[in-house]
Simulated scan of single mutants.
Amino acid sequence: MAEILPADKALDRALALLQAGEVVAIPTETVYGLAGDATNGEAVARIYEAKGRPRFNPLIAHVCDLEMAERIGVFDPLSRKLAELFWPGPLTLVVPLQPDAGIHPLATAGLDTIALRMPRGFGNRLIAALGRPLSAPSANSSGHISSTSAEAVAADLGRRIKLVVDGGATPVGVESTIVRGEDGKLKLLRPGGIAAEEIEAATGMKLERGAKGIQAPGMMASHYAPNAAMRLNAMSVGQGEALLAFGPTRAKGAERAAMTLNLSPTGDLREAATNLFSFMRELDGSGAGVIAVEPVPMQGLGEAINDRLARAAAPRDMAEAGA
C-alpha cells in the first residue's frame, strides 16, 4: 500500500519519487491529483497505467509560475490576462503548444495545444522544487469519482502508487474550469471551480459554449461515475434508493431512501461543490443500486456540479468512445 505523509513533511519524499520517474498523489485546491513529471515519458505512462486512463485523453500540465507556463504555451493577450487574474487557482487555460516546450507527446495525446494550470499550496511548492511541470489528472481510477481526501485516494489507488500526500479535504471540491482563448473569443471547455459568471465579469466577455470533441482533459461523456446508477433531477425517491439531496426541501418519498446526504441544506452552491465527490462516494458505498439526485440550479458553480452529475449518469460505454 502507498505511504501516506502529511503535506508539511512530504516535500522531500515526493520530490525524490518524481525525480525517479514515479508518480505521487498530491492535494490541490480542486481535487487530489496523480502527479508525474510532464517531460518524462515513463512518468506520464505511469499516470495512464495507474488510472487506467485512455491515452487519447490529454493531461493538464501544472506550473508554478507564469514564466514556466510561457515556456510551454503560447499566450495571446486574452489568455495572459486570464492567467494574471485567476492564477494561482482553479482555472486551466488551453493555449497553443510551444515548439520546444519539452512536454512529452503522450501527455498532449497528439494535440497541438496544451492545457495549463497553476495550483496553490503544496503542488506549487513541489513544482518549483522540481523545476519542471507536472501532469496531474485527478487521483482516481479513470471514469470513477474524483478524490477529495487522501483516504479516498489510498482506497482507490493505494496498491498502484508509492506515496499519497495528505493535505486534508480539498477546499473547492470539483476540478478546474477549462477555458480556451481563440480569435479574440473565450470558449468554456469544462465548467469547474471558478464560475463562468466570475470570468465573464472579470473580462467583460461572454463565454461561448458547445465545444465538440476532446479538446482538453475532462471532456469525455462518461466520467466521475459511481458503481450505482445515477438518476438526475429526481422529484421522488424510490424504495431503497440512496438520495443526494440539495437545499431545504426534500423530494417526495425521501423518507424511503436507504441513505441521504445533503450537498448543502441551505442551498449554498460553493458548499455543494466541496461536498459533491465525497458524498457521491459515500452514497455509492451504501450498497444502493441507484442514487437519486435532487435538482441543483444551473447558475454559478451549479453549472460545474451539473456537468459532473451528467457525466456520472452517462452510459458507461460512452467513456472509451469519448462521445
Results as ranks from 00 to 15, higher is better:
residue 211 A to C: 05
residue 142 S to D: 00
residue 188 L to G: 04
residue 248 P to C: 05
residue 146 S to Y: 09
residue 307 D to H: 09
residue 42 E to T: 15
residue 295 P to A: 04
residue 144 H to V: 03
residue 256 R to A: 15
residue 199 I to W: 04
residue 56 F to P: 08
residue 319 A to Q: 14
residue 233 N to P: 04
residue 215 Q to T: 14
residue 10 A to M: 10
residue 201 A to F: 08
residue 242 A to E: 09
residue 206 K to N: 08
residue 174 V to S: 02
residue 294 E to V: 01
residue 23 V to I: 12
residue 273 A to K: 05
residue 288 A to E: 06
residue 310 A to Y: 12
residue 91 L to F: 09
residue 155 A to M: 05
residue 268 D to N: 14
residue 228 A to P: 13
residue 184 G to L: 12
residue 200 E to R: 01
residue 281 R to C: 09
residue 186 L to M: 07
residue 88 P to C: 12
residue 307 D to V: 11
residue 31 V to Y: 01
residue 119 P to R: 12
residue 20 A to R: 15
residue 22 E to N: 12
residue 233 N to V: 02
residue 245 A to W: 01
residue 212 K to C: 09
residue 223 H to I: 14
residue 42 E to W: 10
residue 135 S to V: 10
residue 297 P to F: 00
residue 107 A to H: 05
residue 114 I to A: 11
residue 183 D to R: 09
residue 261 L to P: 06
residue 28 T to L: 10
residue 266 T to D: 13
residue 80 R to Q: 05
residue 228 A to C: 11
residue 185 K to E: 15
residue 282 E to S: 15
residue 41 G to D: 01
residue 299 Q to V: 04
residue 124 N to C: 15
residue 208 E to F: 06
residue 177 T to E: 05
residue 281 R to S: 11
residue 253 G to A: 13
residue 277 F to Y: 14
residue 151 E to H: 10
residue 139 A to G: 03
residue 140 N to Q: 07
residue 67 E to N: 12
residue 275 N to P: 08
residue 320 E to Y: 08
residue 241 E to Q: 14
residue 5 L to C: 04
residue 215 Q to N: 11
residue 63 V to F: 10
residue 183 D to F: 03
residue 114 I to W: 05
residue 36 G to W: 00
residue 171 P to L: 09
residue 225 A to P: 07
residue 275 N to T: 12
residue 24 V to K: 02
residue 306 N to S: 13
residue 223 H to F: 08
